[in-house]
Amino acid sequence: MAALTFTPSGIYCPAGDFYIDPWKPVDRALITHGHADHARWGMGHYLATDIAAPVMRHRLGDVSIDTVRYGETRRIGGATVSFHPAGHVPGSAQIRVEVGGEVWVASGDYKVVGDGLSTPFEPVKCHHFITESTFGLPVFRWQSQDVIAAQINDWWRGCAANDKTAFLGCYALGKAQRLMSMLDPDIGPILTHTAIENTNAVMRAQGIPLAATIQAGGDLVHKDHPGAIVLAPPSALGSAWARKFGPQETAFASGWMAVRGIRRRRAGDRGFVISDHADWSGLLSAIRETGAENIYVTHGYTDIFTRYLNEQGWNAQVLQTEFGGEDAEEDAA
């Protein structure tokens, strides 16, 4: 029997009797990272990295989470399990499962370039590799973080010079903290929506160094913070809360902003192309480095990406999961 199998509840390991990122309630769940499509409510026991666990507790409430360090080996039933950096968000992991010499890696979400915040991606040799394909099309190619940081800071500087508040839409877990590290504090103060500041507080409490921010709650006096940039979830852009800041420009930071049509639909004024997922060449290099022959493709452009991999000589197949889906755009892209 294969080390990992695919069931209606999620990716399952018969030898260890556990699931990886299951979407139905099960007894024992190994979780790659805290995003909502991977870490769901209702599992009996959770296992995640020590870095990912605090945010999961914050999001899932009082649940039983056992933690493991990157690279540490655990024996679960007949399976040997370890977690390895996926570079997606702080604490995110690829989960390696070995049963009787057969090695599988379920990578969750990942990116291969460093972001200065998450532990950098490490390739893990395996026979079977489960990959995402959120941006699995050759039109997606990310520029370096420095280039995007300069674009965002230029935009912010322009807003500040015109006495406008800069509103930057981004996701609360991962993207927001990464953007904070890219902003030039000499331009002005960084304000945050409560949803983002709550996540910041969790990360600061666990010792992750983050840029200084001011929570933009209901009692904030906007005039006291001229030249500010406000980080907010996309749903808060243009809301009554946002309008209280007076003259403003809005932008959105996401890999989807690479496509003009999507940007014009989603973003207010500007779109910055920055993602916590691998781009086309990142996906291919990650797959190549695993040395795996068998590739299972989850959320994203699964059909197209799988066809390409097969043509390039891999043994690839589409894996129907409930990752991403409608929310692929909404969560952390």
Binding site: L137, V139, G261, I304
Partner: peptide, 13 residues
Amino acid sequence: PLWLFEEAYPIVG
């Protein structure tokens, strides 16, 4: 391959 380009085109639009 050309087919991959053709698949990407309607997605970009």
